[in-house]
Computed example of a mutant assay.
Amino acid sequence: MHPARSITPHKLLTVCAVVEIATGLAFVLTPGLVSQLLLGIVGTEDTHLFARFFGLALIALGIACWPRPVGIGAVRSMLLYNGVVALYLAYVGVFVSSGLLLWPAVVFHVVMSALLLRR
């Protein structure tokens, strides 16, 4: 058997999902460390905010890539993504900073989460 043929799409998606979820968790939990290790930069509170956004997106991407029936995974991923981003943006708005579009973005993600839950 040819070695490349033993890697099924299911296995590949599983590996991709595990890597993306682990990387996303690392960004969420230790953005400074990951920024230092991956980018060679010293993280600041500003860069940590963006690193955590990126981490949340990676976690959602990993869930979307997890081998499941098409549609269900996408809905779950987008539901998780919108829910956690809404919560995180709200946290940022209350405890860190608030820009002109922050609260409209929170509302948008809450609405999207509600619509996805109905599905």
Rank of each mutant, 00 (worst) to 15 (best):
T44D: 08
L37E: 10
V15W: 09
L37N: 10
H48N: 14
L116G: 06
V85L: 02
G24W: 05
I7L: 14
Q36I: 01
S97T: 08
L12Q: 12
F108G: 05
L101I: 14
L79G: 14
A22L: 05
V75L: 11
G43N: 14
A60K: 00
K11Y: 13
F54L: 14
F54T: 12
L117Q: 09
D46F: 04
G40C: 01
A60C: 02
G43R: 14
V19I: 11
E45V: 13
G99K: 08
I63P: 00
V106S: 02
S77C: 12
L89I: 05
W103A: 04
R119T: 15
W103L: 03
V34E: 05
G93E: 01
R68Q: 09
G55T: 00
R118D: 13
G99R: 11
P9G: 05
P31S: 05
P3V: 09
L80Q: 05
M78N: 14
P31W: 03
M112Q: 10
F27P: 10
L29S: 04
L61I: 10
T23G: 15
R5T: 09
I72Y: 12
A22P: 00
T30R: 02
R52Q: 13
M1I: 11
R118A: 11
L58P: 03
S98R: 11
L89S: 03
P31K: 07
F53N: 03
G93D: 01
P31C: 04
G40D: 01
G62H: 02
L100H: 13
A60T: 00
A60G: 07
I72N: 09
G40K: 06
Y81K: 01
M1Q: 14
W66F: 07
S77M: 12
G43K: 13
L33S: 06
P9Q: 02
L37C: 10
A26D: 07
M78A: 13
F108W: 10
L101C: 08
I63K: 11
F53A: 09
Q36Y: 13
S113D: 00
R119S: 15
A114K: 00
I63M: 09
V19S: 06
S35F: 03
A51P: 00
L49R: 10
M112G: 07
G62F: 00
A64H: 03
V92K: 12
S98M: 15
V84W: 01
P67I: 04
V18R: 03
L101D: 08
M112H: 11
V42Q: 15
F50I: 12
Y81I: 10
M112V: 13
R118C: 07
L12V: 06
P69T: 07
W103G: 02
L116C: 06
L38P: 04
